[in-house]
Every structure is written in structure tokens, then in C-alpha cells.
Amino acid sequence: MKLINLQEVTKRYVTGADCVTALDKLTLSVKEGTFLGVMGPSGSGKSTLLSVLGALTRPTSGTVTIDDIDVYGLATEKQADFRREYLGFIFQSHNLIPYLSALENVMLPLAVSKFSSAEKRRRASAMLARVGLPDRMLHLPQQLSGGEQERVAIARALVNNPPLLLADEPTGSLDTATSRQVMELLAELHRSGQTIVMVTHNRDNLEWFDRTVYLRDGLVEKDTGKSDCSLSQAM
């Protein structure tokens, strides 16, 4: 079943007299349960693709549907609800809230939910245990290593059980050993059925993806998974 469907998505940024096309009529479908890697040089449109998929940046044209929901057909506040219920974000630099403990950071998406405090705590604790940090719950981010912070970020992204996990260079600031641990964790999540779209520069991560899309100048240069899904480039 297709979870993601982008139809001729174009995104242009206008800065003064300059107009930069970050995505150029991109059409892409991703099946549920896929671990998709998005690679390409700087400025190729990787982060814009992730931002468009994350209901964060409205495309200039085209449609984005996730789980059959027209994401940009939703009102602004409904888009926020959509992000909370359907998406989990893992940011490049963890982006944990520095004055909240690991447990509280994981509970952040639940703070605006209707769960009881005990249920919020139970879910966040379980998720931290799942990413291997059962004994670091009360630590502040600065008391955690880079890899541990990444794990907290992953736990926060998953605490709402979102159908789609979006990761932007999650290993970008980690050493090789820690990067591997994080990728193993993501692979484990993938094996359990989680759909993941991950942007990366690191070619070492290719082995973990079951499909990789290469972007250049907002266009798909190469797609390793054409047999699994439809991909076309409308010129």
C-alpha cells in the first residue's frame, strides 16, 4: 500500500531577484514499510523534499498525499494535528529542548494530547526503554552523549506511533560507531514495519536502506527502487 504520493511537486524559493527551484515537478510514491534513503549533494533539494513531506513547507505546485490525506489541503491548525498524529521528526542536530529531561523531551508531543499524565509518562518511558535509554530518563540533554541525544530524538519522534518517520541527517554529527548504533536502531524500527524517509550524505548508510533516491537540482537523478514503486520525472 502506498503511504506517500507526491504528484508533480515543485518548490521555488524567491530571494530578492533570485528564484531557486528546489524541487522540480517531482512525482514519487513510497510504499508503507519502506526505509527510503534520500541522497544528493548540497542544494539538490533533499531537505526541501523532507520539509514538504513533513507538512512544513507548502509546495509552489503539485499535491502531497500521505495515507490518502491531501496534506496541503488541510487548514493550518489541522496540518499541526496531522504532523502530531502521522509524522515523527528526527532533526539534524537532535533539537532537544535543553531545559527538559530526556523523559520530558519524549513526552513533548504528548503534552497537547488528552492522555492522562500517568499514561504520557508510561508511553514516554516505554519508548526510551525501547531505544536503549531506560536509565537516562531524568538526564538533561547536555548530560547525554551525542548518540544518546539522537536516541532521545528518535524516541520523541516515535512516541505518538506515527505511520511515517522523517529523519534529516540523524547521523550527521555522530562518530562512526555511534552512527552505526543509531542506524541499527532505525533498521530495527524498519523491521518492525515503520516507514522511514531519511536524508543523508553518508554513503555508508546505503546498506540500511531498501530503496534510495538520488536528487540533483531538484530532480531525481537515480532511484534504486523503481521495481517497488512508481517514479517518474515530468519534464
Binding site: T76, E77, F82, R84, L108, P109, N160
Partner: peptide
Amino acid sequence: TREIGIFRAIGYRRRH
């Protein structure tokens, strides 16, 4: 600003 961006990205509404 960045913190507010995180809140919004993880699904906080404007009113939150």
C-alpha cells in the same frame, strides 16, 4: 525561535 519551530514541527497548534 528554533524551540518554537520544534514545537510546531512536532504538532503544536498555533494556539498552543
